[in-house]
Design a protein around this nucleic acid. Sequence first.
DNA 1: GTCAGACCTGACCGATCGGACAGTTATTGT
DNA 2: ACAATAACTGTCCGATCGGTCAGGTCTGAC
Lengths: 182, 182
Amino acid sequence: MARPASALRGHILDAALDLFATRGYKGTSLHDIAQVVGCSKASLLYYFVSKEAILTELLTPAGEELGALDARLAGVEGIPAAEAAVTGFVDLAMRFRREVKVLFQDILGLTGHPALGAVPAVIARLMAAMAEGSAGAKGLVTASMVIGAVSVTCASDLPVPDEDLRAELIRGALRTLDRETP
Amino acid sequence: MARPASALRGHILDAALDLFATRGYKGTSLHDIAQVVGCSKASLLYYFVSKEAILTELLTPAGEELGALDARLAGVEGIPAAEAAVTGFVDLAMRFRREVKVLFQDILGLTGHPALGAVPAVIARLMAAMAEGSAGAKGLVTASMVIGAVSVTCASDLPVPDEDLRAELIRGALRTLDRETP
DNA sequence: GTCAGACCTGACCGATCGGACAGTTATTGT
DNA sequence: ACAATAACTGTCCGATCGGTCAGGTCTGAC
């Protein structure tokens, strides 16, 4: 075969990132990766000590950048800190989109589950309702933001009473959609 | 043993929901569930035809309620639709918190990964920066919402140019935090 | 008492997983 | 030409997974 001086290593990382992002980490086997790359499973373990080492190498740059953002924010305080945190996090999440997708994959995997068969379509209609009357990009993006915001926040275990949580979620979501009703 | 007329079935569902929510669906084996319940693995498959059937039964109520919300929204349009969609979705996500957690579990599982070791702490500081100056509950909730909103939206593949996406994400996040700077 | 049926289990199965390892092929320096 | 080393692979392994099955145990009806 003899690829030019081991582009193979890079190909493995590429394929792994794609597969992890579409099937999840646990849902992807070494065999799967090898098949996409077109090499043997043993080759993967020639370049990487383990499957987890592949994941580690894929996620490390994002982790380091996040640390850098953290350091950059250390000196700032007050409103500027909030704005810097927001723009920094947005930029980071966008630059490492595929990596973010790896972390969030199994959601999409499970929403395809029979019990939740209609969910994607329903969510799409929900988003449409939220975006009612809003221009193209803004409506789409903000509706998606609300879905993510509410889901993740409910999945987290914030030390906030349910009533307050509900009220803040609704108010926050309406602000996100730019539909404040004071 | 002889539990009172098979409370076992319910116990299995309880334990499975807990485990799925903390280790993820794929990260939980039938053996794990059986161990928590205190019965044999074969008992699980006496009451449920498969592991997936357990997941199905757990997620079905949430799926049905989501469908009901969808139906309820079908008649409404315009601003009221957006508000109804928001409150409906918030209430749903809160009522089925553990189920939502099941869908989102593997994120938290992976953020514990060595390559992302410091991530939870960094995210906590990011959220603190976002909440700067905001009162207790509101700051916590809105910061969590922004993290979720940005992550999920980036993980989705919205048909929106990167520049627009970035701009809307930042504007939307600042609105969520109630820190608009027009 | 005993029979039927619901309840529950230990033991086993095939498939698949991540990984180990000896060996083969290709490349390079001399 | 020829070692030495890097690149790569076929094959095997133990562990674990979801799932099957024959059989044991308990309970209530008669």
